Simulated assay, not measured.
Amino acid sequence: MKRIILSLALVGTLCLQVKAQKGLAVGSKAPVFTGTDQNGKEVSLKNALKTHRAVVLFFYRGQWCPYCNKHIKELQDSLQLLTAKDAYVIGVTPETKENIDKTIKKTSAGFSIVQDQDDSIMKAYGVNFMMDEATFTKYKGYGINLETNNGNNRHTLPVPATYIIDKSGKIKYIHFDPDYKKRASVKLLLSQL
């Protein structure tokens, strides 16, 4: 019971923190970005859209987040369905390469995951937020050290948002919810592709 109350308090605190974040709007031009994925491959939105009909771009918090791992596993389990619609899947996270590897081990993710080392991709998509010191300390008490996980002391996390970007580079669909437990279902993503 104590754990449930702590979890609810943590959700409430994080929801208040990200309330100001809005993300981008459907129909707006998706910010271009380039990053390096877990295999050392350069991944760019521009190049992905040259060779695919759409990009499913999602942001996740880290390997320590069970909701992120569940969502990534669902994307991986349905990857053939997504690629059958000519979609290229890209995950973006602030966590280090070492922790991305842990995510992949937990989820068997076979798509590109890019470390957002300077938070520039999260900022461009309007999903970044700074964790306040009290919440950072609470997380540390749960054994989650963002400084170690992300390799910096910025305490930045993304709202776990998902964007579908069409061939023209416009945002066709957005799932943006400050409640980190809520994610876009694969069924919904498939219906939007």
Rank of each mutant, 00 (worst) to 15 (best):
K22F: 01
K2T: 12
L45V: 03
L57T: 02
I5K: 12
G35Y: 13
L16A: 13
S44C: 12
P66I: 02
F136D: 10
V127N: 13
G110Q: 10
Q63R: 04
G40C: 03
P66Q: 01
V55S: 04
L24S: 04
Q17Y: 05
G141L: 15
K97H: 08
K29N: 07
N99Y: 14
G91F: 09
T96M: 05
V26F: 08
V55A: 07
A54V: 00
A87V: 01
M131H: 06
A48F: 00
K41N: 14
S44H: 11
Q63G: 10
Q63N: 10
R53M: 00
K19W: 15
T135L: 09
K50R: 14
K50I: 06
K46E: 14
D118M: 04
Y88C: 03
K102V: 00
Y88S: 09
K19S: 15
G40N: 01
P31R: 06
K123M: 07
L6T: 11
A84H: 04
L45I: 02
Q38K: 07
S120W: 11
I90A: 04
A9H: 04
T96Q: 10
N47I: 08
Q21N: 15
S120H: 15
V32L: 05
K97F: 04
K22W: 00
S112Q: 13
A134D: 07
M131D: 08
L24R: 11
L14F: 01
F111Q: 09
L81N: 13
K138D: 07
G126L: 10
A30M: 08
K2S: 10
K73Y: 01
A48Q: 07
T96I: 06
T103D: 01
G110T: 10
A134S: 08
D37P: 03
G91M: 08
A109T: 08
K105M: 05
I5P: 05
T13R: 15
T36R: 09
L81K: 14
D101V: 15
V32N: 13
A134E: 08
F136R: 06
K70Q: 12
Y125D: 12
Q76F: 15
L10M: 12
L24G: 04
E133F: 00
D118L: 04
L45H: 04
L16Q: 15
K102G: 02
K41I: 11
A54I: 00
K22A: 03
S120M: 14
Q21Y: 06
L24N: 05
N128H: 04
L16R: 15
A48I: 01
A48L: 12
V92R: 09
T135A: 13
C68G: 01
A48R: 05
V127Y: 10
V11R: 03
E98T: 14
A87W: 00
